[in-house]
Design a binder for these strands. Structure first.
Length: 190
DNA sequence: GTTCTAGAAC
DNA sequence: GTTCTAGAAC
C-alpha cells in the first residue's frame, strides 16, 4: 500500500474515522439514555428536534441493509422501545425511522419529535433526510423485513433528487424560501 | 455526520 | 454589503 499522508496520520495518531462516531457515543455515559441487554439508546449529539434519540443494537450490524429475517425480533424490540419512549413524552408527537442513506456506521433508529425545532438543524439535507422518503418509517422497515427478509437500497438518482428537493413544512403546506424562513415558520407550530 | 468558507443569491 | 448555500476536508 502506498504511504499517503492520510495513512501516516492514521499510524502516528490513530484516530477513529468520523463514520464511527455513533459507536463511540454508545460508550459515552453522558449520552446514554437507557440500555438493555441487546440495545443502547443515546441522545443525538446534534439533535434536529426538541427530542431526538437514537436506538442502536449492541451487535455490530452496520445498517438496515444488513438486516435479515433473523433480525425481526431485534427490530420488534426497537418498536417496543419506541412505544415506551412515546409514553415517557406524552406532550410530544414522536416519529421513529431510519435514514435511507445513513452517514454513520452501526444500525440506528431515530426517535425524533415532529417539531423539528433545534439550532442543530441547519441544512436542506438535514430537513429532507427527515421529512421526505429519505426517512424510512419504522413500521415500513419492519413490514419490508418481514415480507422480503431484507431492506432494498434506494436508487442513487432518487437519493440525489430527494436530498435537493424543495423545502416544505412537515406540518402544513407552507413552502419556505430558505432554511432560516423554515425555522422561523416552525416556531408557529409549537 | 460537522466545520469551514467561497461565492451565489439576495 | 449581508445572508445563505453547497462542496471540500491530504
Amino acid at each position: 500500500m502506498p504511504m499517503t499522508k492520510e495513512n501516516q496520520n492514521e499510524i502516528s495518531k490513530p484516530k477513529k474515522h468520523w463514520t464511527m462516531a455513533l459507536v463511540e457515543s454508545m460508550k459515552d455515559a453522558e449520552l446514554i439514555y437507557k440500555d438493555t441487554e441487546r440495545i443502547v439508546i443515546i441522545r443525538d449529539k446534534y439533535p434536529k428536534a426538541k427530542i431526538h434519540l437514537l436506538v442502536l443494537p449492541k451487535d455490530n450490524i452496520n445498517s438496515i441493509y444488513k438486516l435479515t429475517s433473523k433480525d425481526v425480533a431485534l427490530l420488534e424490540e426497537f418498536g417496543e422501545i419506541f412505544k415506551l419512549i412515546q409514553k415517557e413524552h406524552k406532550n410530544h408527537l414522536l416519529n421513529a425511522g431510519f435514514h435511507a442513506v445513513p452517514s454513520m456506521q452501526r444500525l440506528h433508529m431515530h426517535i425524533i419529535s415532529k417539531d423539528m425545532v433545534s439550532p442543530c438543524l441547519k441544512t436542506k439535507v438535514h430537513w429532507n433526510s427527515f421529512t421526505t422518503a429519505l426517512f424510512k418509517p419504522y413500521n415500513d422497515v419492519l413490514a419490508e423485513l418481514k415480507q422480503y427478509g431484507a431492506i432494498k437500497e434506494i436508487a442513487h438518482d432518487i437519493y440525489k433528487t430527494l436530498k435537493t428537493t424543495p423545502l416544505k413544512c412537515n406540518q402544513c403546506s407552507y413552502i419556505p424560501k430558505n432554511i432560516p424562513q423554515l425555522k422561523e415558520h416552525l416556531l408557529s407550530h409549537l
